[in-house]
Nucleic acid binder design. Structure first.
Lengths: 406, 406
DNA sequence: TTCATTTAGTTCTAATCTCGCACTATATTG
DNA sequence: CAATATAGTGCGAGATTAGAACTAAATGAA
């Protein structure tokens, strides 16, 4: 009979267990380094012998190296393991005004970091970026490069290989991935800035694993990165997360996206400046930075403008809370520098939740660091496997049923 | 040293591969039954020998039975396999006005289905429901019962074991799970109605697997069920999906949830009735059903009221499209009965998407069927494992790296 | 009728992987 | 120096899949 269509559901082979456990052990080493094999066995629940085999493989693969020898009150001393920090990742954070380029090790520590202006010409900017990357590769030629990660204030379509939506960048559709790949010979990964922040939180964040949180980036516009069920939500074409362009008022001011009254029209840095300029009835070349300083120094109109912005920020966050029920909202942006002023205001806005729901914890994060580290994670994630292990299903299967069937 | 904290990341044992492949094969049989072992091997990519072992296990477990013998132009005839439809699931759909109780086989086919009134008294209603279920268990005593699944117009907290948010039901917090479990001796699963519809689509929907879609239920209120990255998004405490209670206008009419200007205040059946009553300046005891009939028969004010409702529906859906980028929006509710009127109107509202984005496909689904089938899936899912297999990580791991490490 | 051909399904062996126990290595303490 | 404790390795058993060989059962041509 005809060849049946090859759905070829992803099945498990005899090596699947190793692939899963390798990822578990590698991520445990990343998280808890330096750590001994014995501790890895205790923490993971795997046998010591199994851990030995897996770590041997990881050392062969050059992801892990031997660290110092430990010291215990009794018994043989443990050999600590840690990640091989000779492997480096080239990273860039593309923003409307300036681009940050850097090089980091697998732990998200930066060896070097510098900035360059972002111009209106995509080709020129990409060329300059590629030159900086090539230079870094020469300076750090003793390292092994894993790839290039770039965060952008917009969306990159893997299908058309183009930046397809970046209203605050003002670029026409452009293939940044191919351009940099051709110029550097490295594999390039491109991701939205808010999504990069999500990855950074998951990979390098402290504390226990949160399965549901949202990152809200506040700058020229508003971006959101959604982490739900222990996964980064990407949506069709990777377009998920544009809550900043949800219209709060169909008759509101027009937005860079072409719509009207979008959330970011009311709650971005740009919005606060607009509020301020409206109140002083002029529009000098103030920056958001200036506005923060004015508010700090007691300018009541500046305070009022920022209050309006925060109020709008909270209103939009209530949308996220109702729809996604996150445990946590992470705020990124210049406004986090005055978190003492904004934090409680946002918290109180978000506290108004549905009966039965719990308000999320709201906390700030440092933007550039998060975005750059996120791109490190972006490049590494295919080698490290999933972090929030999606194998909750194992164990659930046959066992109970077998007893049921007798 | 101190016992290290037992994070005990989920690791893979030697049986994990079997657990995964068992789920794959079982779901392939469910989807494509009747199907031969040989075809299962072709479709899954597993070896015929492996398929034989797994199907043998599934037959032992009584999930699968032999079906008829096939017929081919040449060669030995295949033995078809199919699910054992002697296993039955008891299901209920709790709605503000009435409750539907039924019994279904593992294929989501209903053996029996009846309705009863829903009263304001949770205890009384639950008692009546339990009585109906016990009766069904007697009538179908030749079946094996897998459990009870209940869909509710609200949220059930697994922590407090209570219905914690069901504004359109008007019940105080109530433990429906424990009540029915005690009365029937069966395991009970409770899930939000919109989420149940999501499960029904994923389990029993036709067509290829969509990884991102949203179900919007439109009746007394508006509920949303979010399926993203191939998973049902549940959020903290299972509260995700209350986009119906996102405020579109902070000064709008008050909502049953305690807020103001929620999406459902503008786009639910109730909203359309309010629009109509406002336009005729009276409030007789019209139902939404009546309004549909009036519009059908050419009542311009009824048409106008429904248009306003659909417009608001579209506005809220644009929020979902911007934030989640679904491939598809599935609409459930009485309005689907006049889909020829509403469908194109909704489509055109939703068509206004961000540059770079694609408007989702919008289609109707039958509500009661979807909710009841969703609870069937709810009860079965722990035995059948994940449907959209989250093992994309396998293969990605060691192989390339090994070559890289030399 | 007989036999080549084809397809379905089973059996058997090799390879992979985890588990659990035994064993080795190495430290402290009395 | 012996007892004890802890880290790490070695090895056989059991589970599982892959792949080849084999059996079963059908068709159709010689």
């Amino acid at each position: 009979m005809k060849r049946i269509d090859f759905t070829n559901t992803q099945v498990a082979s005899s090596q699947t267990a190793r692939d899963i456990n390798r990822g578990v052990v590698l991520n445990l080493i990343r998280r808890r380094q330096p750590i001994s094999r014995a501790d890895l066995a205790r923490v993971s629940g795997l046998q010591r012998s199994t851990v030995s085999l897996i770590t041997e493989q990881l050392i062969r693969e050059r992801w892990v190296v031997h660290g110092p020898i430990g010291r215990l009150p009794r018994g043989r001393r443990p050999t600590f393991l840690r990640l091989n920090d000779r492997r480096a990742i080239l990273v860039a954070d593309l923003r409307p005004a300036q681009t940050t380029v850097g090089i980091a090790d697998v732990n998200g520590n930066f060896l070097s970091q510098e900035t360059m202006p972002t111009t209106r010409d995509p080709g020129f900017t990409a060329g300059a970026l590629a030159a900086k990357i090539r230079h870094l590769m020469q300076v750090y030629s003793d390292r092994v490069f894993e790839g290039v990660g770039i965060s952008i204030p917009g969306r990159f379509s893997d299908v058309s290989r183009r930046i397809v939506f970046a209203p605050n960048l003002g670029w026409p559709e452009f293939d940044i991935k191919g351009t940099i790949e051709d110029a550097t010979g490295m594999r390039v990964e491109v991701e939205n800035a808010a999504n990069a922040c999500v990855l950074a939180e998951v990979w390098f964040g402290h504390g226990e694993q949160v399965r549901d949180f949202v990152v809200v980036t506040v700058s020229e516009g508003i971006g959101t990165g959604v982490f739900a069920n222990g996964q980064l939500i990407r949506g069709m074409n990777g377009m998920a997360g544009e809550f900043g362009h949800v219209s709060l008022d169909p008759n509101g001011p027009s937005c860079t996206c072409g719509g009207r009254g979008c959330w970011e029209v009311y709650a971005s840095n740009r919005a606060a400046l607009r509020y301020y300029h409206e109140s002083i009835k002029s529009s000098d070349g103030l920056t958001f930075q200036d506005l923060l300083v004015l508010a700090e120094s007691g300018d009541l109109l500046a305070v009022k403008a920022l209050d309006r912005m925060v109020h709008a920020l909270g209103r939009g966050m209530r949308m996220l809370v109702a729809g996604l029920a996150p445990e946590e909202i992470v705020v990124v942006g210049e406004l986090t520098r005055q978190w003492r002023r904004f934090g409680p205001a946002i918290e109180s806005e978000v506290a108004m939740v549905l009966p039965g729901g719990h308000p999320p914890h709201v906390r700030p994060a440092e933007g550039i660091l998060a975005r750059l580290r996120g791109t490190v994670a972006l490049v590494l994630q295919k080698h490290f496997g999933p972090l929030a292990s999606p194998q909750e299903f194992a164990e659930k299967g046959s066992r109970q049923i077998r007893s049921l069937a007798g």
